[in-house]
């Protein structure tokens, strides 16, 4: 599984491209998720199929309660499906043990959160080092270079509370990149940011897909979906559409929200 040695300092996923291994990095088949809320059984996912390849930039679009975050959580092994089969990075999550799921999160998926979730006690560099440490890539890349690649080469020793929201999100992306994992999962990554900053973040994420990572962005912002390779729209736990953005992929400069 640790065939991820081929990342360069910028986090490019070169080995996968060369070997073709894990091209089908995400595969969901008939996945359902039910929650019991008191006496009521709530269906968050009603049996979805989803397939994402490496190098794809996918936006999962939907209103609140549509099931998009649940999908993201299941792909990231943060939650388990009620039924169906989930394969990420070649590993069947539904048949994996708890420790295997932890290992998957270390080695295959990386998260970017709406509220950044940086470690407040660690500097920007240390937050990035954290990503490298947990994925076992310590020493294989320079965290300063990774931060530089997201435009934060001048903020290395700053603590999260000393950074703006956009800078914090860029540190969060750098931390995710530092893991070198082939799947990037971003939950409303621009939710707390202004347009300009959000656009920069999306640009960074799109760039990761171009480096052969599978990038999944969950959002309720339809405008964002216009820059994706593919838009998966969800409603009431179902995928209601799956394809290129309506009107074709647009450059970032034409987006507004």
């Amino acid at each position: 599984m640790r065939s991820l040695k081929g990342f360069d300092n910028a986090g490019n996923y070169r080995e996968t491209r060369a070997t073709g291994e894990f091209r089908d990095v995400i595969d969901l088949q008939g996945v359902t998720k039910h929650y019991e809320v008191g006496p009521v059984l709530v269906t968050a996912l009603a049996g979805i199929d989803l397939h994402v390849d490496a190098g794809e930039f996918v936006v999962v679009l939907g209103a609140s309660g549509s099931g998009k975050t649940t999908t993201l959580n299941i792909i990231g092994a943060l939650d388990t499906p009620s039924s169906g089969k989930v394969t990420v990075g070649g590993r069947d999550l539904t048949a994996s043990s708890r420790s295997e799921l932890f290992a998957l999160r270390r080695e295959t998926v990386s998260f970017i959160f709406q509220s950044f979730n940086l470690f407040p006690g660690l500097t920007a560099t240390e937050n990035v080092e954290f990503g490298m440490d947990v994925s076992g890539r310590n020493g294989s890349a320079d965290p300063a270079e990774i931060l530089d690649s997201v435009g934060l080469g001048h903020r290395l020793g700053h603590f999260p509370h000393e950074l703006s929201g956009g800078e914090q999100q860029r540190v969060a992306i750098a931390r995710a990149l530092a893991t070198g994992n082939p799947v990037l999962l971003a939950d409303e990554p621009t939710g707390e940011l202004d347009f300009k900053t959000g656009a920069q973040i999306l640009e960074l994420l799109a760039e990761q897909a171009s480096r052969d990572r599978a990038v999944l962005v969950v959002t309720h912002n339809r405008e964002i979906s216009r820059m994706a390779d593919r838009v998966v729209e969800m409603s009431s736990g179902n995928i209601v559409s799956d394809g290129p953005p309506e009107g074709g992929k647009m450059p970032l400069s034409e987006l507004h929200w």
Binding site: L78, F102, R105, R106, S110, F111, N117, V134, S135
Partner: peptide, 8 residues
């Protein structure tokens, strides 16, 4: 967050 990154 640590768990999300696979820290046991």
């Amino acid at each position: 967050t640590m768990f999300a990154y696979g820290v046991p």
